[in-house]
Design a protein around this nucleic acid. Structure first.
Lengths: 107, 107
DNA sequence: TCTCCCTGCTACGGTTTTGGTAGCGAACGA
DNA sequence: TCGTTCGCTACCAAAACCGTAGCAGGGAGA
């Protein structure tokens, strides 16, 4: 079951949107998949390779969850792409990259 | 094993800092724990309650990982608190809350 | 000093999530 | 028609996570 804001999710019954985000983004590969879609639509097998050969089982599960959450969709060629909301999330996660560089510098 | 930038991590051999971040933040409860530490040091059991009664096993594992990553530390009273780097990450994640509100509005 | 309680944390075993491999049906080109 | 590629699913094993119980240590009170 996909986490949706306004409803109870894994780890919180409150329904607070941020908790749904924590549940969704705290699943393996979700951040990575969003990241790999940053430059436009990608097909299933290509996406799988870009994600270091993630198993197709998990990839398909995650794609389904992200679709149910409204962050990605499939075009007529069945390629996976970010929705407007997904692109919005990507922008929100942008500072993460800069932070990771600082993290790297400090270690 | 804690993900550290510059080294291979779960899901990527490249050593790119962003991949280490994806590995770390993609683990259950990590985002939530950072979130719950936003207002200052919190003791183990209090933190456990704030995180909807997360099991102590996982909580302790996560705290260890976050400590090894340099994002949190323990003061003399054994309370857990963000380091400067941890606070930096928190700022980087700030846009996520606003995004989750927009997500909520669109659903 | 002897309880009583509260703290941080660990042991252990069951459940859930994630992963690896194989392969199906459809579409396309030769 | 044959071969190749694509999106995806079935199946089972490994790893992660959870729930409960409980230990050791410290402080307050009698």
């Amino acid at each position: 079951m996909t986490p949706i804001p306004g409803r109870p999710v894994r780890g919180s019954q409150s329904g607070r949107p941020i908790m749904a985000a924590f549940d969704l983004l705290g699943r393996r590969w979700v951040l990575r998949i969003l990241w790999e879609l940053r430059d436009g639509p990608v097909g299933f097998r290509a996406l799988q390779q870009q994600c270091d050969d993630i198993s197709p089982t998990v990839l398909n599960t995650r794609l389904g969850e992200l679709r149910a959450a409204g962050l990605i969709w499939q075009d007529d060629a069945k390629a996976h792409a970010l929705t407007a909301l997904g692109q919005d999330l990507q922008r929100a996660l942008k500072p993460l990259q800069a932070w990771s560089e600082r993290w790297s510098a400090q270690t």
